Each structure stands twice: as structure tokens, then as C-alpha cells.
Amino acid sequence: MKQARIFGGGGIRAAGQNGIGALIFDNPTRKNAITKAMWRAVPDALDWLLEDGQIHCIVMTGGGQKDFSAGADISEFATERATAVQARMYEAENSAAFTALREVRIPVIASIRGACYGGAFGFAAAADLRIADDTAVFSIPAARLGLAYPADAVADLQRGLGSQMARHMLFTGAALPAKELLACGFLSQVVVPSALEGAAFSLAQTIAANAPLSVSAAKLALRASESEDENLLTEAAVLGAATFESADYLEGRTAFLEKRPPVFKGE
């Protein structure tokens, strides 16, 4: 078990238990708005969760019981994003956080309730799987603020939402309910509020019980396919081939023949 640890001045909380990590935007008095310190902290929090190899799936959510996150903390913009130079630096830190989440080697599940706006929507789009409750509302207000959304995050949105819905949300800044994002395939499931935490962690438990090398190989192959990156595709093929010689492959075959649940160790 990994003891809980805070990052980004307390705005990011991470913890792990029984193979499942939690990454929490923990600023509930401001609808879990993401401060500059929190943006910077996301890669470090992810590194900490993965450092001992015991975490096999991450659930990302918001602190409190109301919101995933209202996105970047606009109250900081007058000091942290006032000039073009500052804005470019701020966006670079946004992109670094999205990249860290997108490229983490294990699956990430976004568990979403209430507000999921702007940069928080970007985090949800960078996740592998997304579950929401029926209070969730999604919006990308960049066009209403006179800003451009980071290009790498736009690519995630297009993959998750589809071309037409991504355009609709980016061009209009409209707020849409969870049922509409379920319909376009951005969400895999919408549940009642009382069932959200259980649904997210049940999915995480299922993933964490599977062979870690197999799941990581699958995630890398999906990334390679989506990005059409030949180097990633080669890396994914190498990682996939390594599973054939793994102890987990032997354990999987043996458990199947013995009619028992396998116990995988990621080796």
C-alpha cells in the first residue's frame, strides 16, 4: 500500500492500494480548479504512483462530492497568463501534464461528476477510459476566453469525441450533459451519482487483476495505432513479443488448466 501523498501545494493528492492508484484534483472549494502548481505537479504525482511497479491502473477524479474539475484556475490568469510569453509558458506546462497522463504505461480511468470544463476536459480526454454520473457537464470554453486550446489536447478530443462533436464543442464552447457524450462514445458508461465510485473502482480492479505486461502492451499498441507513429508501433511489437517469454504467460496457461484465477506479478 502506498501512503497518500500531496503535490502541487496540496492541490493534487495521490494514493495507491491493492494495485490501484488514485490521482485526485483536490481543490473542492474552487470546484477543483487546476492551479499552475497543480499543472506542474501532475507528472511528478504519476511518477510517484508508478515508481515501485505495484500500481496497475489509476483512477483520476475530483476531490469532494460535486465536481471533477472546473479546469484551469482563471483567477491566476492575470498574474500567470497575462502576457503572450506567460501564456506560451503556461500552455507548455498544460501540454506536459496532458502528455504525462496520456503516455503513462498503465491504464487511466477518469471518474467524472459535476463540472468537467476546459483543461479538466483535456485530462479526461487524455485518459484511457471515462465513466461519468448523470450530474456531469462538459465544456471547452477556450473560444469564449479568447484562447486557443493546446493542439495536443485537441488531438485527444478528436479521438475521444469524434470529428464533428470535437468541432462543435471547440467552436461553440457549449456545455453538454453526460448523456450526449455517452452517445458519441466519449464516455463508456453513465451511472447514477451513488454508483460512480463503485463503477470506476470495479473497472480498475478488473484491469489490475490482469497481466500487467499484457495490459501495458495493449495500451502502447493502441497509442501507436492512434498516432500512426512507426517508432511506437515497433516498441509495442517488442513489448508484446516479450509477454511470450514472461512468467505471467506461464501462470496464465497454468491457471487456465487448473481452473483457478491467475495470480500475475508483472514478470
Rank of each mutant, 00 (worst) to 15 (best):
F7T: 10
G10F: 01
G11F: 03
I12E: 01
R13C: 13
R13D: 07
A14Q: 01
A15C: 05
N18K: 14
G21M: 01
G21R: 05
F25A: 13
F25M: 13
T29K: 15
R30Y: 11
A33R: 06
A33M: 04
W39I: 12
V42G: 05
P43S: 09
A45F: 00
D47K: 14
L49C: 06
L50A: 11
E51S: 13
D52C: 04
I55S: 10
C57M: 02
Q65S: 15
Q65I: 13
A70Y: 11
E76Q: 07
E76P: 03
A78K: 14
T79A: 14
R81W: 10
R81F: 11
V85H: 12
A87E: 14
S95A: 15
E103P: 07
V104Y: 11
R105E: 14
I106P: 05
V108Q: 03
V108C: 07
A115I: 11
C116V: 12
A124G: 10
D128C: 03
D128L: 06
R130P: 03
D134A: 12
F138C: 07
S139I: 02
P141G: 08
P141D: 01
R144Y: 09
L147H: 12
P150W: 00
P150Q: 03
L157D: 00
R159M: 00
G160A: 04
L161M: 08
G162S: 06
S163T: 15
A166Y: 00
H168Q: 14
L176A: 13
L176C: 07
P177Y: 02
A183F: 00
F186K: 07
V190A: 06
V191K: 02
V192K: 14
P193W: 04
E197M: 07
A200H: 04
Q205G: 10
I207E: 02
N210P: 00
A211C: 06
L213I: 13
S216F: 01
K219W: 02
L220S: 04
L222S: 08
S227Q: 05
E228P: 00
E235W: 04
E235Q: 13
A236C: 00
A237P: 03
V238T: 13
V238H: 10
D248A: 10
Y249C: 08
T254C: 08
F256R: 14
E258M: 13
K259T: 11
V263S: 15
